[in-house]
Amino acid sequence: MTETTHAEAGTATTTAARAHARSQAGTVVDCMPQLPPPAGTLWSETVAAGGYTHLVLPAGAHVALTDRDGDACAHLLLFVTDRPWERLNPADTVKVQWNAYLRLGSQLLSDQGRVLATLVADTSGRHDALAGASTAARNRARYGDGAAHGPSPAGRELLLLAAAKQGLAPRDLPAPVSFFRGVTVAADGSLLPTGSAGSGAEVVLRLEQRTTLLLANTAHPLDPRPAWHCTPLRVTVTPGAVTAPGDPHWDTTPERHRAHLNTAALGAR
């Protein structure tokens, strides 16, 4: 028998296919969830370059995103679980806080004026709330392919897959915010990419409501390099508490204070 025939014979019957599948138990690869999660965590996963994840997380959870090798780009969407019509609004996020740039202490705001998450740690400083995610058409034009399972997947295509697994439709998806690939606004209003902060950079988001999180790890739409680039992203979720009165983040500005009051008034805590 040829080598190919031997491989085919290994899964040629249902019994053989089952035995082959079960033999893979315990196999560890570079990009995968850790099951069970390590002690003290709710979830731990390495998202491949060109991959995505989707999680339903409790209020107060701390989501640590780590640019492991220096070329990740985390395109993030947040929805209030069981109330998905309330979702991340990047325009309100920058407008209400009078700042086009995400930084330590920034809130990710919903379209209802409530806080979805607070940025409580940041060693990157290279983020974007303005450009959104790449599209299949844009990636086809730039790289020759933009399909979710192709060699240069577009951010929106990956987020659509993540959304579908949470019962969300294309019409439910706003533009995401992106972490680890920064942009600045030039005097003429154009967006200028600033690249990454390098390997090991990390941000931590404290979730202020019970949250459905969608994340795509793929090249930023304004990446100036002619070829598609992306590296794995680590996601680690630990339990915690929401921001409360007396926390330094509660009163940093009048606008942020009001957003926390709006959230607390809903009973989201």
Rank of each mutant, 00 (worst) to 15 (best):
residue 257 H to N: 08
residue 202 E to C: 01
residue 230 C to P: 00
residue 252 T to G: 04
residue 53 T to F: 01
residue 79 F to H: 14
residue 221 P to L: 05
residue 196 S to E: 03
residue 209 Q to T: 06
residue 114 R to C: 14
residue 30 D to W: 10
residue 149 H to M: 06
residue 132 G to W: 11
residue 251 D to W: 00
residue 48 A to R: 11
residue 100 A to C: 00
residue 225 R to A: 15
residue 46 T to Y: 00
residue 216 A to C: 03
residue 244 A to N: 04
residue 2 T to M: 02
residue 27 T to Y: 00
residue 58 P to R: 06
residue 93 T to V: 12
residue 190 S to K: 04
residue 64 A to R: 13
residue 52 Y to D: 01
residue 182 G to W: 03
residue 33 P to N: 05
residue 79 F to M: 02
residue 245 P to V: 04
residue 175 A to V: 07
residue 193 P to F: 03
residue 235 V to T: 07
residue 226 P to G: 06
residue 257 H to S: 12
residue 260 H to L: 10
residue 18 R to I: 14
residue 247 D to R: 13
residue 61 A to G: 05
residue 125 G to K: 06
residue 49 A to I: 01
residue 178 S to P: 01
residue 146 G to T: 11
residue 82 D to V: 03
residue 186 A to R: 15
residue 98 W to F: 10
residue 104 L to D: 00
residue 49 A to D: 07
residue 39 A to N: 10
residue 70 G to A: 06
residue 44 S to T: 11
residue 174 P to W: 01
residue 39 A to R: 13
residue 207 L to S: 03
residue 1 M to Q: 11
residue 106 S to Q: 07
residue 237 V to L: 10
residue 175 A to R: 05
residue 163 A to Y: 03
residue 204 V to L: 02
residue 146 G to E: 07
residue 164 A to G: 12
residue 225 R to F: 13
residue 15 T to K: 11
residue 106 S to L: 08
residue 37 P to F: 03
residue 248 P to S: 09
residue 101 Y to P: 00
residue 217 N to V: 03
residue 109 L to T: 03
residue 269 R to L: 14
residue 236 T to D: 14
residue 186 A to K: 09
residue 36 P to R: 09
residue 143 Y to I: 14
residue 93 T to M: 12
residue 185 V to Y: 02
residue 118 T to M: 02
residue 135 T to N: 09
residue 131 A to V: 14
residue 188 D to C: 05
residue 14 T to H: 14
residue 176 P to M: 06
residue 236 T to M: 09
residue 214 L to A: 02
residue 122 D to R: 02
residue 32 M to I: 00
residue 63 V to E: 01
residue 162 A to E: 00
residue 161 L to T: 09
residue 99 N to R: 12
residue 238 T to C: 05
residue 19 A to T: 14
residue 264 A to C: 05
residue 175 A to I: 02
residue 197 A to V: 00
residue 134 S to P: 10
residue 200 G to H: 05
residue 230 C to Q: 12
residue 158 L to R: 03
residue 189 G to T: 06
residue 99 N to Y: 00
residue 255 E to W: 07
residue 77 L to E: 05
residue 1 M to G: 13
residue 266 L to F: 10
residue 71 D to F: 07
residue 45 E to G: 02
residue 146 G to Y: 11
residue 189 G to P: 05
residue 266 L to C: 12
residue 262 N to I: 00
residue 254 P to A: 12
residue 56 V to M: 07
residue 23 S to Q: 12
residue 134 S to L: 12
residue 5 T to F: 05
